[in-house]
Design a protein around this nucleic acid. Structure first.
Lengths: 254, 254
DNA sequence: CAAGCCAAGTTCTCTAGACAGGTAAAGTGC
DNA sequence: GCACTTTACCTGTCTAGAGAACTTGGCTTG
């Protein structure tokens, strides 16, 4: 039963990949450890270099190892942040069931904002539709990147209708305590409702080097739309997350 | 500016990949179309076959093309389903801001359940912690797969504490109208609160062939924990989603 | 002792081929 | 016209080797 797939793998490169993979899972190699080099694996298994490389490329595209040119192939670690979609987590009573991947999470580390850029732009197609304005209408864009231990883990671009935010502190590099939502509220446009849409795919070349992603790491695309109480859209926030750095959490009632 | 990466790409395989990628983005090749074969690209660019293959492997791992042995390399389509985390979407008033990727979504197609298996098992470590029972304690597992147009797009495994569901319709292959949650409610364990935790990574070999994923497709792992009003955990549902088949949506109030 | 250089070791790129195995269309026979 | 076979084409696997690019640690030099 089960058929297998896990079992043998008749192909040479699959057998080599399988052997390394199970060695890693067994803990023979820990995160950060270096695997045997291509030359070692060649002589060890008696195969050509390209065959060894194909085996390693399997593991790389599975995201469990990472090659550093000139140095070797290393086992990757998975130490994600937890991102809570719904902040008001006052519900102490749900504490009974523990979080699923809690063991992996290290919440003591902190995110720092990297390079804030606030610019006025013309709304392109997609932003215009979501924001409910004409394509080409003036919007303000607020772009920034978040670093964790110096490594970028997310880049984000918020868009606001120009009329709503002109002259407000929303457009300052540092919007102050409470962030842009607090400033929007002061301007009479308090967000009352949010929609987040998520999808996942492999990164484009540009995304990969902006987040410094090794190959084998997907990205998560989140678009958050913020509505005021009367249904006006006040912000569209496009985020690109390093999938290996995040666990997302949403809580809601039946 | 922005430096480039998009620009040249001095390496041969990068240039070939770049050329094909931009041809696809320009619409020269539409979803389902066949790209020039390896032999064509060899003579066209005057390079060895392995070089062409490396170029194509870039596009494959980006998830934008898919190779079928003996047939050729084809441009992949992206036609996801929309999965709403919070069902009570009565909020007509938010309709102003349109959904972000709505153009891609085709909601007329329908999911069908594939192979339901209900078995009694001993809770292993992770399930036990979340469910709040001892490891090895009896639990009921309900596994199934969802197909869209015959293609598997999700596999799911729900776990219930044995004491709560023994003898109820929760364990029937077809739990009837309203699904297992309706049956849980009838048994006096109505779910009142949910937590969903998401993460994303490249699939293992087993996941890849259960969902028949071409390489370059990540999976989304969702664990939903269902709580009753008094905080008891009644279900832990582990889902594995084909990332190319889903857009996830969560709505909530400030 | 510090700074810079150098060499060994490593992965990455690329070549030129050979055979295996799957696909799909053309052709053949009934 | 239908079913079957053949055949051309295509991607997958693998070999053997060479040079480029990069990292690291040891060595030399000031």
């Amino acid at each position: 039963m089960g058929s297998g797939h896990g079992a043998a793998g008749k192909l040479k490169y699959q057998r080599i990949a399988e052997e390394l993979r199970s060695a890693i899972e067994a803990g023979e190699y820990e995160p950060g450890d270096r695997l045997p080099g291509e030359n070692d694996l060649m002589t060890l298994h008696g195969v050509a270099r390209m065959t060894v490389r194909q085996a390693l490329s399997v593991l790389r595209s599975e995201g469990i190892v990472e090659a550093r040119k000139g140095a070797g192939v290393f086992v990757r670690a998975f130490r994600p942040l937890r991102r809570r979609g719904i902040q008001r987590l006052a519900s102490e009573r749900w504490a009974a069931g523990r979080s699923v991947w809690s063991a992996d999470v290290d919440d003591r580390r902190e995110l720092v904002v990297d390079g804030v850029q606030v610019t006025q732009e013309e709304a392109h197609e997609r932003i215009a539709t979501v924001l409910g304005v004409e394509p080409g209408a003036p919007v303000w864009a607020r772009r920034r990147r978040y670093l964790l231990d110096g490594k970028p883990v997310m880049s984000a671009a918020s868009h606001f209708p120009a009329g709503l935010v002109a002259g407000t502190a929303v457009l300052l590099p540092d919007p102050g305590p409470g962030g842009v939502y607090a400033r929007l509220a002061e301007a009479g446009h308090a967000p009352a409702h949010f929609r987040e849409e998520l999808r996942t795919r492999m990164p484009s070349a540009g995304e990969a080097d902006e987040l410094r992603l090794p190959s084998g790491t997907p990205v998560i695309l989140i678009t958050r739309t913020a509505f005021t109480a009367d249904g006006t859209v006040v912000e569209v926030n496009d985020m690109v997350l390093d999938a290996a750095s995040y666990i997302l959490e949403y809580e809601f009632d039946a």
